[in-house]
C-alpha cells in the first residue's frame, strides 16, 4: 500500500498542477499587436502576452515565472532554464524525489514563425531499502509555432521521451499515478484563437504513436543463504494514448490562468507520461511572472 500511496500522491500533485494539455497558460512573452509588422527580435519588450509552454515561444529575457507546473527563468530572449516543482514537492509527502531540470532554446524567431527545442531530465530513486534502482526520464522536444492569420496561432510539438531504469528496485515506483515511465514518441498540435488581447480559446490533440517498454534488472541478497535476481519489463497498457481537449487561457501581464477539459488519456505534465486509463481529462493551471 505504501508504494501505491506514493504513486497516488504523485498523481494528485500532477492533477492539481494541471495538465499541460492547454499549455498551462504559463508564462507568456509579450508580442506585437496582431497584424503589426514582423521581425520580432525583442518580443518581451512588447505588450501582448503569449503562451510559452509547449510552444516555440519563450518566457522572455530576465523574466521569472513561478507556476504550479513549471518554474522558469529567461536567461536571454532565446534561452531559458526551468524546473518542475511537482517533482520536488512530492518529497514532502512520500520518500520519492524527482529532481528535474529543463533547458529551452529558441533557434528561429521570425514572426510569424518560431522554432525551439527543449531538453528536460527527471531522476527518480525507486529503491526501497532491500532493493535498489533508479529511473531516468529525458523528454526531448521540438516546437514550432506559426501565426498564419492575425488571430490564429498553431503550435506543433514533437517529443521523444527517453526513459531508462537502472537496477531493479521497487518496480511499482517506476510509474507515476499508475502510468508507466517508458520510451515514447509524442506529437501535439494546438490551435489558439486570440479572442481578446488577454483571452485565447484553445483546442488541441496529442498522441503517442510510438511506445517502447523499459527493462529493469538487479540482484539482491535476502539473507546470508539467499540471493535473488529480477529481470523485468514494464509496458504501458495503452500503447497509443491520445487526448483531445479544449479550454480558455487568460493571459494577463503578470498572471496566467487556464482552465479546460477533454477526453482521452491524461499526460502527466513535464515528464510526458500518459496515465493508463482513458476518460474525462480536466485541466487547469496558474502561473505568476516577475519582471525586473
Amino acid at each position: 500500500m505504501r508504494k501505491w500511496g506514493k504513486a497516488a500522491i504523485f498523481l494528485v500533485l500532477a492533477a492539481t498542477s494541471g495538465g499541460r494539455a492547454f499549455a498551462q497558460g504559463g508564462g507568456a512573452e509579450a508580442i506585437r499587436e496582431p497584424g503589426s509588422s514582423t521581425q520580432s527580435k525583442s518580443p518581451s519588450a512588447e505588450a501582448v502576452p503569449r503562451i510559452d509552454e509547449r510552444t516555440a515561444l519563450m518566457v522572455g529575457a530576465r523574466r521569472l515565472k513561478l507556476g504550479v507546473l513549471f518554474f522558469e527563468y529567461g536567461v536571454t530572449e532565446h534561452l531559458s532554464v526551468g524546473t518542475q516543482p511537482v517533482g520536488w514537492a512530492v518529497r514532502a509527502f512520500a520518500p520519492v524525489l524527482a529532481p528535474n531540470l529543463n533547458v529551452k532554446f529558441q533557434f528561429v524567431d521570425r514572426d510569424p514563425v518560431w522554432l525551439s527545442a527543449m531538453v528536460a531530465g527527471y531522476y527518480g530513486n525507486i529503491s526501497n531499502g532491500k532493493v535498489s534502482g533508479e529511473v531516468l526520464i529525458a523528454p526531448i522536444s521540438l516546437f514550432a509555432s506559426v501565426r498564419p492569420v492575425r488571430r490564429l496561432y498553431l503550435h506543433a510539438e514533437g517529443t521523444y521521451v527517453f526513459a531508462r531504469a537502472f537496477g531493479d528496485g521497487d518496480l511499482s515506483q517506476a510509474q507515476v499515478g499508475g502510468t508507466l515511465v517508458a520510451r515514447a514518441v509524442q506529437t501535439q498540435l494546438m490551435a489558439e484563437v486570440r479572442v481578446l488581447q488577454w483571452l485565447s480559446l484553445i483546442a488541441l490533440g496529442r498522441g503517442q504513436p510510438y511506445t517502447s517498454p523499459i527493462r529493469a534488472s538487479g540482484t539482491s541478497q535476502i539473507d546470508p543463504y539467499t540471493t535473488a535476481s529480477v529481470d523485468a519489463e514494464l509496458a504501458p497498457k495503452i500503447e497509443h494514448p491520445w487526448v483531445i481537449a479544449g479550454g480558455v487561457a487568460l493571459l494577463f501581464p503578470h498572471v496566467r490562468l487556464t482552465v479546460g477539459a477533454g477526453y482521452g488519456t491524461y499526460f502527466v505534465p513535464g515528464m510526458d507520461v500518459p496515465l493508463q486509463q482513458r476518460g474525462f481529462v480536466p485541466d487547469g493551471s496558474l502561473a505568476v511572472l516577475f519582471t525586473p
Binding site: Q175, A182, A228, V230, A232, E233, L234, A235, L275, Q276
Partner: peptide, 12 residues
C-alpha cells in the same frame, strides 16, 4: 490501470 509487467525472478 497499471502497466503490464513481465518479469523473471530467480532465487538461489
Amino acid at each position: 490501470s497499471h502497466p503490464l509487467v513481465r518479469a523473471v525472478v530467480e532465487v538461489r
